[in-house]
C-alpha cells in the first residue's frame, strides 16, 4: 500500500477548516459551560434548599449519561419538543455545554473546597465583606488549585467534539470520514486527523500533569 500524500494535500484546506470548527465549537461550549458550571457550583455549595437540589440533579445527571446519548437527545428531541429548527452545530454546542457545565461545576467546587478553612476564618475575623472574601480570598487560590483539573477537562472536551460527527457537524472526524469515503483513502485521512487531534490535545495533557505534580509538591506537606 502506498501512502497517498497528494490526496491529503488536495483536501488539506477542508481538513484545516474542520480543525477550525472543532476549536470554535470547543471554545463556545467551554465558555457557556463555565457559566453553567459556576451557577451549579454555587448552588451545590449553598448546601440546602431548592437551588442545592436542582444543582445536584443537574450535575449528577449530565455527568452520568453518555455524551453520545446527550448529543442525540438534543439533536433529535429538542427541536421536536420546542417545535423549532436547531442546526446540528447549535445542537452540538448545547449538548457539550451541558456536559461541560456539569463537569466544571464539580471541578470548581473541588477548587473552592481546597482553599484552607483557616484562610476564610481569618478573613471573617477581619470583618471583610462576603463579596471581597469570594473575590480576593477564595477565588484566586481556588483557581490555582483547580487549573490542572480544568485543563484536563479541556482535553476531554476536545475529544468529545469528535462525537458530533454522529450528528453531521463538519468537524474533523466527520470531514475525514466523508473524505475517506469519497476518495477511498481512509487510512490517509483518518491517520491525519488522529495526528491533528494528538497535536491539539497532547500539550494540554502534559501541562495538566506537570502542574498537578507541582501543586502536589507545594501543598502536599
Amino acid at each position: 500500500m502506498r501512502f497517498e500524500w497528494d490526496q491529503l494535500i488536495r483536501y488539506g484546506p477542508e481538513l484545516l477548516q474542520a480543525f477550525g470548527v472543532t476549536i470554535v465549537i470547543s471554545a463556545i461550549s467551554l465558555i457557556i459551560g463555565i457559566v453553567l458550571g459556576m451557577i451549579a457550583c454555587l448552588g451545590k455549595l449553598s448546601g440546602q434548599g431548592g437551588a442545592y437540589r436542582l444543582s445536584i440533579a443537574f450535575i449528577d445527571f449530565f455527568r452520568t449519561i453518555p455524551e453520545v446519548v446527550l448529543i442525540f437527545w438534543v439533536y433529535s428531541c429538542l427541536p421536536l419538543l420546542l417545535s423549532v429548527r436547531i442546526s446540528s452545530e447549535a445542537c452540538g454546542v448545547i449538548a457539550l455545554s451541558l456536559f461541560s457545565g456539569a463537569y466544571l461545576a464539580e471541578i470548581f467546587r473541588a477548587g473552592v473546597l481546597a482553599v484552607p478553612r483557616g484562610q476564610v476564618d481569618a478573613a471573617h475575623a477581619l470583618a471583610i465583606p462576603r463579596l471581597h472574601i469570594w473575590r480576593k480570598i477564595i477565588i484566586p487560590p481556588a483557581i490555582r488549585r483547580m487549573m490542572p483539573a480544568f485543563v484536563n477537562f479541556l482535553t476531554e472536551l476536545l475529544k468529545a467534539t469528535s462525537l458530533l460527527s454522529a450528528i453531521a457537524v463538519a468537524e474533523m472526524a466527520y470531514v475525514a470520514s466523508i473524505l475517506g469515503a469519497k476518495t477511498l483513502s481512509y487510512f490517509e485521512f483518518l491517520s491525519a486527523i488522529a495526528v491533528l487531534y494528538f497535536i491539539l490535545i497532547f500539550p494540554f495533557s502534559v501541562w495538566a500533569r506537570r502542574s498537578e505534580k507541582k501543586l502536589l509538591q507545594r501543598t502536599g506537606h
Binding site: 475529544k159 462525537l163 483518518l190 491517520s191 494528538f198 497532547f202 495533557s205
Partner: peptide, 10 residues
Amino acid sequence: NTPLLVQLIW
C-alpha cells in the same frame, strides 16, 4: 490523547 471515536473508525 486522541478521541475514542477516531480510534474506532481508524
